[in-house]
Amino acid sequence: MSLLEIRDLKVRVGDKQILGGIDLKVEAGQIHAIMGPNGSGKSTLAHILAGREGFVPTGGSVSFDGKDLLAMAPEIRAREGVFLAFQYPVEIPGVSNKYFLKAAYNAIRKHKGLEELGAGAFLKLIKERAKLVELDPTLLDRPVNEGFSGGEKKRNEILQLAVLEPKLAILDETDSGLDIDALKVVASGINAMRHPSRSFVVVTHYQRLLDYLVPDVVHVLVNGRIVKSGDKKLALELEEKGYGWIEAQDRERVAQP
């Protein structure tokens, strides 16, 4: 059984059909990259998996670890092991990063039937994980993402990933807005979290993150469909030639069904 199995998934946002039938299978331990031009539906795919309100599935199914993912509330998905690293992490004034992480961590523990972790042990855990992404520990006491730089926000996302230890991590444009040094730090943090039972779906417009985070499979999303899949060489080809040729192929396909 695959960890994630998406079958003919169709999604509407508002009046607009964004995804027109996605098929995707992710095995445990794999990294899949989803690439594609702007507006192709990459972020929609990331958000529908996390349970974002307003994203309406109009057909198809998503099975996660053998369960119907689309039937679960967002918090249940998280507790079952789905994690979305946001492209634009939300600032939450008044809630300390540390408190937020602890509430999330213990909610997941409770769901698994484990005892909640005490304050001391938890502090030790997050400090240790913060080192993975070279996050300034003073940011743990600050309100969630408030006043963080773009790079700090992305590191904070990966810190959450490292603390919550999901089965499936969906990274939505985690590389956007990062300079090359920050990108390396974030990528090495993600690599440190690789595990035979943990899978990654990496949504990205550019190839450069994939220099550090080597995908098993690369998919190209155009107009709400996966039009091509291949190995990591496909990412390099896209980097070199852009998306134009693949969009042209897709137009031909649509014209001659």
């Binding site: 939450i92 999330a104 909610a107």
Partner: peptide, 9 residues
């Protein structure tokens, strides 16, 4: 949504 996506009900 951000909080819920982290497991908080």
């Amino acid at each position: 949504f951000y909080l819920r996506s982290r497991g908080i009900d």
